[in-house]
Nucleic acid binder design. Sequence first.
DNA 1: GTCCTCATGTAAACCGTTACATGATTTC
DNA 2: GAAATCATGTAACGGTTTACATGAGGAC
Lengths: 205, 205
Amino acid sequence: MTSTLGYAILAILARHPRSGYELSTAMSRPLGYFWTARHSQIHPELQRLVAARQVSFEQVPGPGPQDKKIYSLTDEGLAALRQWVVEPPQIRPERDEMVLKTYAAWLADPAELIRLFRDQLEAHERRLSSYEEQRASMPEAPAHGSPAFGNYATLWCGISYENHRIAWCRWMIGQLGTDRDLLEKNDQLSASLYPSWDAVKPSES
Amino acid sequence: MTSTLGYAILAILARHPRSGYELSTAMSRPLGYFWTARHSQIHPELQRLVAARQVSFEQVPGPGPQDKKIYSLTDEGLAALRQWVVEPPQIRPERDEMVLKTYAAWLADPAELIRLFRDQLEAHERRLSSYEEQRASMPEAPAHGSPAFGNYATLWCGISYENHRIAWCRWMIGQLGTDRDLLEKNDQLSASLYPSWDAVKPSES
DNA sequence: GTCCTCATGTAAACCGTTACATGATTTC
DNA sequence: GAAATCATGTAACGGTTTACATGAGGAC
């Protein structure tokens, strides 16, 4: 019954109670990297969760004209969240605009494509270094059972993902920039950092 | 004006003309891994693309009661596609249900989590070996300018992505399965195949 | 005769974004 | 005094999924 957005809200409230406003800031970039939502989606969803008895709220006088509502998980909500976590995820189609562009890249001007992938590369490098910073200010391998484990594990995934993306951008730039000065640079970078086809081959079959 | 779905259709038609039905099979799993759509979305979009003069069609008598329509790109459509390819992609939020579950994983039973990540791991391994097979039946590094380049580059991305995902699943299973017999197995697997934090560190800052 | 593939469409429901709407408090 | 932050909501729109609707031809 509860939507994935609903579980995202429950997952955040499981850490500590928050207002709808705080939820919406937590679920917008650059904080909410793996599930985002606007306040216009969060407020109605909170109302639904209250109706389903998965969250409750207490009203405290806020700065604005309306009362501030501090939402927290109910026992029912926590139980539902716990159950949902270990259920296999819905298979939702991957829609990746960069990969789609790549599929049609054979039609486009190589110089412009290089510019596009350089921009992407920079963006992913910026994200990676931000993740690395976050990791640095975090205890190494927190115990399962503490919320820090969730933070640590999602960060690990994020760092791994950015490395994958960076390797791919570098490879693309290398492929597109044949017989040019950037060839040597990119060859070095992409060959070492990421599993190339050839390096992976001996492991299986 | 044209939506991303529109460009996805243009990108497929740029290879060779197809009917709406053929488009819908091409854009459903397991073929269309990076942009999927149902026929109920494709047929109206094709009508819009025809109205925008980006595709044209010729009717041939089909098996059913209605004529089969073979769509192909117009010069205008090809030009629009070429332009779109090198434009920076819209930043669309990442919504990853597995990462969201991971964020809340500290609440769940480790044994059940291991089961979940093992299933995920298997699915990604299956995909990877299917990709590897496809790569094997493909010329090494096709020239930019031929459609084979698009196939090769998207496959490279897919293989890199699956490797990232596999490494992450293995790491998670290793983290969850402390003081158990599976610890040794997973330590070996994840440490070698994928960049751990520590291995990446000396490169930057 | 039933099921599967080929073939094209429409309608309702759902999810998410953008825009509309209001207003107090704090900071510059 | 203007702008940013805190705070909560609704409405319109666009994209996606699911369901409805039809029907020929071939395989079993």
